[in-house]
Design a binder for these strands. Structure first.
Length: 658
DNA sequence: TTCTGTATAAACATTG
DNA sequence: GCAATGTTTATACAGA
């Protein structure tokens, strides 16, 4: 550790020219150095402090904390050093007359500010170490009390003397800190914001200058020497196994120790601080002492501080209460952990279906997501959908379909600002709806999704993935307050969309006609949106041209998944199908990108969708009969030229012809 | 400017 | 005849 520190210090030697490198020497513990006098004093004081500690005292452990802190200092200084212009550089600038006097003035001011900042940063490290030292010191006292609490009858006299000594020690340290803090504040070097007084000591003392730090260190060490001297005659506690007082493994204890020391010190330092933060003490609120079981009322903060120091000083009762509070907090934390675990399990349960199928096509999805988030939120749903129709083991749930894709493109970030709810809102709606269900149900706000997306969502939310028109209506009115008015308009739109988009397949059954979703067809509506993404196009091209394995996998999966409809259940490997669908989406996008208008004449597309369309829509089919026309669709998908078409022109054109 | 996707409105046909 | 359902057409808007 020493070597590392020394190495760092050496490598960052130039940093010592900045006044803020004062901790550097301390890290070497007496090594020769070229730091400021305050550095030597600090190092000497640290060493002096260490020497005065009982060998097995907490200070011994404390120094282990200090060392890492010290090691950080040179690093931070080194990081800042390049920003500081050396006098030589400044002279060069002046000689070259590169800068105007005004610029030079500004530059000088910046340099001064930078230097000051560096000094403060370094002092912050110093006081971080000091903070740890004090914390451990207090911890030491607390631990001592804890250990002595049980065998109190045997050592009561000794303990009392030690308690007194510790309290005096603490008070001295606190007073010194407060005095310096007050001085710093008066000098404008330290600013304490309201509500900031609860910060740790190092936060409050980051503005100290080396001279004050030096004085503080001297006083601290003198106080410690005094305490050492006082305790020299009655060190019976050393018989206890405090040789290795663990570093504050228990944050609660540490925190409490800090509280008992720091806050007292902060508050007692003077009126200035209190004016800035009169009610910031965690043990003081609404004029009441919040010490467990106390609830004493005070008119002012000063009275509270006196009460805190008098009534809740480091004694047996306070220690015991501290232990109880520790247990309370531990129980609460335990309970919190359990509840968190429960929440995680719930979320996992609800979302596992979405995460599982997405694992395989993730790269594609990632690319697509980036593209879509940039270009069009509408494109997101198809990306998230491929998995759903092809996952036999995981029944499609709307919540799961798009959850991992969406949230960034959630409605509120895109939708409501639009002047019109157009295709931009054809985004993955499941998560949004699930997350804002209450909102949509109660607020008369139009959901930022297309009719097609909403219809699809309604259908997919149904247990059998099929709904009658009236059920779709009901879903709209049930889920969205917006659709509880102007029924004629939006119902007409729903019907229009159902007929218009061939992704919605009408199926006649015993009860009448129901509507289902052809997910693949739905996904085909997306392509144009990704055409603008070079990254995605590149990715797709890779899949097409350089990824025969992927293409083969896709085609194989398509062969397996010859039933794209939800109503007929999905067949095939979820993983493979997920991948295949994802690839398919990308391919669709790529094809659209590279063959924009040629899609209508695509050989792989034209006849089959038309046949599919005819078969399903013109001929009343039994559920068993779906495999006929659907298999045709599958055959079409086997074509290397993956079809892509618009619902409008395509369907209408072919339907009209046929 | 063109193309594309969507929303809206309306007309018309079919069906129960 | 009527309402619900389904289809088709036309138009407008927005974005790429």
């Amino acid at each position: 550790m020493m070597q590392e520190s020394g190495t760092e210090a050496t490598s960052n030697g130039p940093a010592s020219q900045n006044g803020g490198a004062s901790m550097e020497g301390g890290s070497r513990e007496g090594r020769p150095k070229s730091a400021t006098p305050s550095v030597e004093v600090t190092a000497a004081d640290l060493l002096h402090l260490q020497q005065h500690q009982v060998e097995q005292s907490p200070f011994h452990t404390c120094l282990h904390f200090i060392k890492p802190c010290q090691q950080q200092v040179p690093v931070s200084v080194a990081m800042m050093t390049p920003q500081v212009i050396t006098p030589q550089q400044m002279q060069q600038i002046l000689q070259q007359q590169v800068l105007s006097p005004q610029q030079l003035q500004v530059l000088l001011q910046q340099q001064q500010a930078l230097m000051l900042q560096q000094q403060r940063t370094n002092l912050k490290f110093i006081f971080t170490c000091l903070h740890w030292l004090l914390c451990l010191y207090i911890l030491y006292a607390c631990l001592l009390m804890v250990f002595l609490f049980v065998p109190l009858s045997h050592h009561q006299q000794q303990v009392s003397a030690q308690q007194l000594a510790f309290q005096q020690q603490l008070l001295q340290v606190q007073q010194v800190q407060q005095q310096h803090l007050l001085n710093l504040q008066r000098q404008g070097l330290l600013t304490i914001q309201p509500g900031q007084t609860g910060l740790p000591l190092h936060s409050l003392t980051q503005g100290m200058i080396p001279a004050e730090l030096q004085q503080l260190w001297k006083e601290v060490t003198n106080a410690h020497v005094k305490e050492e001297h006082n305790n020299s005659s009655n060190n019976g506690h050393r018989g206890l196994d405090l040789s290795s007082p663990a570093p504050p493994k228990n944050p609660l204890l540490n925190q409490h120790a800090s509280t008992n020391g720091q806050y007292m010190s902060h508050k007692r330092e003077g009126s200035t601080l209190e004016e800035h933060s009169p009610h910031s003490h965690p043990l003081y609120g609404h004029g009441v002492c919040k010490w467990p079981g106390c609830e004493a009322v005070f008119d002012d903060f000063q009275s509270f501080l006196k009460h805190l120091n008098n009534e809740h000083a480091l004694d047996d009762r306070s220690t015991a209460q501290c232990r109880v509070q520790m247990q309370v907090v531990q129980q609460l934390e335990l309970q919190l952990a359990k509840d968190k675990e429960r929440l995680q399990a719930m979320m996992t349960h609800l979302h596992v279906k979405s995460t599982e199928p997405k694992a395989t096509p993730q790269p594609l999805n990632l690319v697509s997501n980036v593209t879509l988030s940039k270009s069009a939120p509408e494109a997101s749903p198809p990306l998230s959908l491929p998995q759903t129709p092809t996952t036999p083991t995981a029944p499609l749930t709307p919540l799961s379909q798009t959850h991992s894709v969406i949230t960034a493109n959630s409605l509120h970030s895109v939708g409501p600002m639009r002047r019109r709810y157009s295709e931009k809102y054809n985004m993955p709606i499941s998560p949004d709806i699930s997350q804002n269900k209450e909102f949509y149900m109660n607020a008369d706000v139009r959901p930022p999704f297309t009719y097609a997306s909403l219809i699809r969502q309604a259908i997919l939310e149904s247990p059998e993935k099929q709904l009658t028109l009236n059920e779709i209506y009901n879903w709209f009115t049930r889920m969205f307050a917006y659709f509880r008015r102007n029924a004629a308009t939006w119902k007409n739109a729903v019907r229009h969309n159902l007929s218009l988009h061939k992704c919605f397949v009408r199926v006649e059954n015993v009860k009448g006609a129901v509507w289902t979703v052809d997910e693949i067809e739905f996904q085909k509506r997306r392509p144009q949106k990704i055409s603008g993404s070079p990254a995605l196009v590149k990715n797709i091209q890779t899949s097409l041209g350089y990824g025969p394995t992927l293409s083969a996998a896709f085609q194989a999966s398509m062969a397996e998944n010859n039933i794209p409809l939800y109503t007929t259940a999905s067949i095939g490997s979820p993983t493979l199908n997920s991948l295949a669908n994802a690839i398919r989406e990308e391919m669709n996008g790529a094809m659209d990108h590279g063959n924009s208008n040629g899609s209508d004449s695509s050989p792989g597309r034209s006849p089959l969708p038309a046949m599919h369309h005819i078969s399903v829509k013109e001929e009343p089919l039994d559920p068993e009969d779906h495999e006929g026309p659907l298999s045709l669709v599958t055959t079409a998908n086997h074509s290397p030229d993956f079809d892509h078409h618009r619902d409008y022109d395509d369907d209408q054109g072919h339907d009209d012809m046929l």
